[in-house]
Amino acid sequence: MLLSRSLFLYGLTESRMGSTLILILFAIISILIIINNPFLSVIPITLITIYYIRYSMIKQLLYGALVVAIPSLWMSLSNVLTLYIMAKPIDIFNVLAIFIKAEVGALTILFVMHNINIFELSYISQLLSKKLTFTIILLMRVLPHFLKEAYEMIYIHKLKNEKMWKTLAMLFIRSDEIIAFFTEGLYLKRNHINPKLLYRKHTLLIQLILIIVNIAGLVFIKQFGIR
């Protein structure tokens, strides 16, 4: 449920009417900042938080942070364990840096995924192949649908005291059925997809401001050699 909420909580909000390309560039710059100095990741994370607050999507950031905290913690703790087994001194700053790198890096990628402009993405992908466009939008459609059904099935099987492998087997049967239903429902439409671009100027402007501030942060690090 948490995974589903962290990915698919809102509809097509204004935040998703900007440019995915700008967001990808923003993510690349953020990751460069994180790699250079994990403690300066405060810059991208502040910008990301402001964006979520601006579009009233703060819950998605919180759920996302909770979900990515699990692998981030695991990565930093496994580092502690490795050092302990090898009888080497444990540097708490290093452990913290690993956690921050994983957490902020994953949140930055989630930020891009949360705010993908479906119109832009399908327009660009159709330049390569219309089948690719169809696949991308269908994936974004099917995934939340399947997660919703899977969540319900898991809970109902829990009430039945069923073993997990049986639930997984039934999920497999159901996913096969969902594919068959979508195939029939969309069969006639498969060749008629006609993507067009759609943006909101205001969202584009905010995204541009974010990326400028982020670039300034990166230049600052490079200029003053902060490590």
């Binding site: 119109f119 399908s122 939008i137 974004m140 939340p144 997809i193 067009k196």
Partner: peptide, 12 residues
């Protein structure tokens, strides 16, 4: 097929 009704109507 699309994740939002507006994108479904707009793209087809």
């Amino acid at each position: 097929s699309a994740p939002y009704p507006i994108s479904e109507l707009f793209m087809y």
